[in-house]
């Protein structure tokens, strides 16, 4: 009975995993398609065009470049801001703690469409032009909370005695932070930064509210293409993203499991 039960869970888990991965397989397969007509829905014939000329579709690489730039900038700023907040929450006792927690939680509990539209009303009222700058502001805003959560989880597991030990051994507060606290919090900070990058890179709804015709991000390009017909290059880029994500996540796993093995 227990045997059947255990394997039932495994089968269910396997089926769900398939469900989650099938679209990625389709994306990879269809990046080698030479579509008949403008919609890339049916596999017509094998072609490597998407891979040999990835910028073959008009505007695709420009939008990709813009998304990368926005993603890197937004995740960097959000990581700095979020890490500072996480340290304040994890290391200090201060007035207004619960208000801070609420303010961090709220952006995660607000639908994107509300955040995007409300920012639009603010920018309209202040006369802030839409475009890359507005998109950056928005992305940093919704990424900060996720960074805080990721870093705070890590900071909470840090042993405060390690910092005491550093002070005891003659490290001043700055050296203690640089040589002990920061390296130990690094996995959390890295996870937060990665999460922020992927959220920024992937965002369509909020971006769309704050974009101008000259600031077409990659998700906006894909959205526009979904109505006109999706070029195969989109599938190739999607596949590359999946592979890059796979490599990054595997590296993260290896690093963290090595760390865990040492602890065990």
């Amino acid at each position: 009975m227990a045997w059947i039960r255990r394997h039932l869970v495994a089968f269910a888990a396997f089926a769900v995993l398939i469900y989650m991965l099938v679209p990625n397989v389709i994306v990879a397969a269809f990046s080698f398609n030479n579509p008949r007509g403008k919609y890339n829905y049916v596999f017509n014939e094998f072609s490597t065009e998407a891979w040999t000329s990835p910028c073959g579709a008009q505007g695709i690489c420009e939008s990709l470049g813009l998304s990368l730039r926005i993603g890197v900038t937004a995740s960097l700023v959000a990581t700095v801001l979020g890490t500072m907040i996480a340290f304040a929450l994890g290391r200090y006792r201060f007035r207004g703690r619960s208000a801070t927690n609420l303010l961090i939680f709220m952006p995660m509990a607000t639908p994107e469409v509300v955040m995007g539209s409300s920012l639009l009303t603010l920018f309209l009222m202040l006369g802030v032009p839409s475009g890359t700058g507005a998109i950056l502001i928005a992305h940093i805003m919704f990424c900060v909370s996720f960074v805080v959560v990721a870093v705070k989880a890590r900071v909470a597991t840090l042993d405060p005695r390690l910092e005491e030990a550093a002070a005891d051994l003659g490290a001043n507060p700055f050296q203690t932070f640089l040589r002990v606290t920061l390296p130990l919090a690094a996995p959390g900070i890295a996870a937060g930064a990665l999460l922020a990058f992927s959220l920024s890179f992937d965002d369509y709804i909020i971006t769309n509210f704050n974009a101008s015709p000259s600031s077409i991000t990659f998700p906006m390009y894909v959205w526009g293409a979904s109505a006109r017909g999706v070029p195969v290059q989109v599938y190739a880029i999607g596949t590359v993203m999946f592979l890059v994500a796979l490599v990054v996540v595997i590296i993260g796993q290896v690093l963290s499991s090595r760390r865990n093995r040492q602890v065990a």
């Binding site: 989650m20 994306v27 269809f30 894909v222 989109v234 999946f242």
Partner: peptide
Amino acid sequence: LVIAPFFTSFLIRTLA
């Protein structure tokens, strides 16, 4: 395998 697709453009995956 659970996390990686999450880092791939969800628009593209929805198109799939």
